[in-house]
Amino acid sequence: MKKILILFSHPALEKSRINKKLVNRINKVEGITFHDLYENYPKFDINIEREKELLLAHDIVIFQHPFFWYSCPPLLKQWIDLVLEHGWAYGSKGTALTGKWGLNVITTGGGEQAYAKEGMNGHTIWEFLAPFRQTFSLCKMIPLPPFVVHGTHKLEGEEIDKYAESYVYIVESLRDEKFDLATLQNARYLNDLSVKKVEG
């Protein structure tokens, strides 16, 4: 049993189609902590002590967010800036997060083919996620491949439901330790490990 912390950040969930569904499903999964950053800190007044305690109490940290401008919404960036303190999360004395796993769960308008060397965006998702990956690494955490929802603007009801189910399946599998670390690290996306994978 691994304890999972989902740090969710979306500045306008009321306008969201995909994340709203993902959230509605994932926050009912047992044994995970769903932490809605914009709901807790609308004034960017992050309670650093509380966040540190949350991190310490969990084994896997998930950043769930829309992939705005190839990155995360500003509150999550502020969270990274302020919570991952030198001497606590990184640096020679910063060992609080050692060995924990970290990954991103992102939603993006571009399709899979857009995220390739020859594609519109010129890079893969994995390449774009380098700053997050390295953030995890610097904190002595183990970065995992992301869970990605592609082509969000074209998705409709049932397709979104499938993604949500797949997300729930992956999170439950992580919780119940169904996959070994090597399997996880070798996947391109964690979606690929889901039996309920969405085709296309």
Binding site: I48, V83, L84, H86, G87, G91
Partner: peptide, 23 residues
Amino acid sequence: NRDAGWDTDSLREEFANKGKIYP
């Protein structure tokens, strides 16, 4: 003034001691 994440004091200290750079 406790937002230490934006504070570079401890970083500079460590840099001076070990010559290793962090963000």
